[in-house]
């Protein structure tokens, strides 16, 4: 009866542990300057070709206070020197105003990545609404 050799390998499965987020956030200002963005990847350092998550926090670009405005976040990543991006689409969930959890991140190749965060907000303009988009790109070296 065949018995899976995998049992033999089980011992090698020593936990690489470190499921903690990055102690220092990656941070940047959006193009318009109106928003400060802090990103903490978990686990840290980001593992190659394995799923990871992001906690994204938004702060007012002027006062530095946690942003309370209703916004929509879109998170993606790109490899400028390879001409391709992340293979997966992410899911963004609001944890509380100004704080978001992003799942489905995966960097399948080594090299320079660019984390792209777009922030969309509905703004009243006289008697109609318009969607205003702001964005930033954060470099991450894997």
């Amino acid at each position: 009866m065949p018995k899976c050799l995998s049992v033999l390998f089980a011992l090698t499965l020593v936990a690489c542990g470190a499921n903690s987020p990055s102690p220092v956030p990656l941070a940047g200002r959006t193009k318009s300057g109106s928003c400060l963005v802090e990103v903490r990847p978990t686990p840290w350092p980001i593992p190659l070709n394995e799923p990871f998550e992001l906690t994204v926090e938004l702060f007012d670009g002027v006062t530095g206070e946690r942003s309370e405005s209703q916004v929509f976040l879109e998170v993606d990543a790109w490899m400028p020197s390879h001409g391709h991006g992340m293979l997966r689409k992410t899911r963004v969930q609001q944890v509380e105003p100004g704080q978001y959890q992003v799942s489905g991140m995966l960097f399948h190749m080594e090299g320079e990545w660019e984390l792209r965060i777009a922030i969309a907000q509905q703004q009243a303009n006289g008697d109609f609404f318009q969607v205003v988009r702001d964005e930033l790109a954060l470099p991450i070296e894997l």
């Binding site: 070709n49 293979l87 399948h108 190749m109 080594e110 090299g111």
Partner: peptide, 15 residues
């Protein structure tokens, strides 16, 4: 080569 042929299978398992 490791850019695509990485990890346990020497493959990133992608396309």
């Amino acid at each position: 080569c490791h850019l695509c042929h990485s990890g346990q299978m020497l493959s990133d398992l992608e396309f």
